[in-house]
Design a protein around this nucleic acid. Structure first.
Lengths: 152, 152
DNA sequence: CTCTTACCTACAGTCACTGTAGGTTCAAGC
DNA sequence: GCTTGAACCTACAGTGACTGTAGGTAAGAG
């Protein structure tokens, strides 16, 4: 299952469960530059590169942005400093997640009312269309709950 | 406050609280084609156009995608049909919202553990970095909670 | 008739990838 | 050493729902 280091891009992608293009993208973004290349220009990833990728992937699963991960990696490299800045990034992200949950729950409430009140007749008397056409039928000021393009 | 119809793009944008470019984008997408243009080529929006925009904006606030809104408008135009398809779109969307809430709550749990356990010392002993570097420290299989690029 | 404001089209940028085209390198088998 | 096929390379376009910009045109007031 485990292969010898250094790994090719395909071996690393396979091991980490990401696409080859994703690794090239991370390199472009300066997150994961392979520690070597062959004479012919092919990427070779060391064990440290591999650990770094796992850190990046895990942080992505936690919903941190590429930019935040870049900051985390930069801060992590200065082991002697206080970890206050790292904590601040994580706390800010948690606030963001909480805010998104709040907005989505308001949205769910409105969707529940809309869907449950529709008696299922003709289109002309559809409650869903009625609610969408008239903001006064909403209980909460759901304002901008669903439309922002923020990640889940 | 209210202006006479037909409205210019700027007047309509102002009234609806969207950017002028957004209206041009909706036209490109076939969602809101103004019912007239001046001899010089400037857009003029009727009262019906205005109502349609409010429908679109409200649906966007509900988190429906442009594609879903296109379908809703198409279905709404066939007033005599059963509204089952409209309900289905709304129900599917509600399921999606619920799934996103579930994933975000798992994420919040992990972030809570991570942030709360960090004692705030040096970077080298930072719990946040430790958790991100080692998936075994997670309680749940948060897998793909935070990384998908779905809208809030 | 001028001036300013608002409008026009067309295109690039956002985010975190994903997909494609067209060409090159590597490692294995002969 | 040579051939073959898989994996690799770069560069660029596309996703969704906008937002921002450049360079030019129309409308309406004075």
């Amino acid at each position: 299952m485990s292969e010898d280091f250094p790994l090719t891009i395909g071996q690393l992608a396979n091991q980490a469960g990401v696409h080859v293009q994703t690794l090239r993208y991370y390199e472009n973004e300066g997150l994961l530059v392979p520690s070597a290349r062959t004479a012919g220009g092919q990427r070779r990833y060391s064990r440290a590169d591999c650990q770094r990728l796992h850190f990046i992937r895990h942080a992505r699963e936690f919903g941190f942005s590429i930019e935040q991960i870049r900051e985390l990696i930069d801060l992590a490299a200065q082991g002697n400093r206080s970890c206050a800045e790292i904590d601040a990034i994580a706390r800010r992200h948690r606030e963001d997640v909480r805010r998104r949950i709040r907005l989505l729950r308001e949205l769910e409430t409105e969707l529940d009312r809309m869907v449950d009140e529709c008696a299922g007749g003709r289109v002309t008397e559809c409650r869903v269309l009625e609610v969408l056409g008239n903001h006064d039928l909403c209980r909460t000021d759901h304002g901008h709950a669903g439309e922002s393009s923020e990640p889940t």
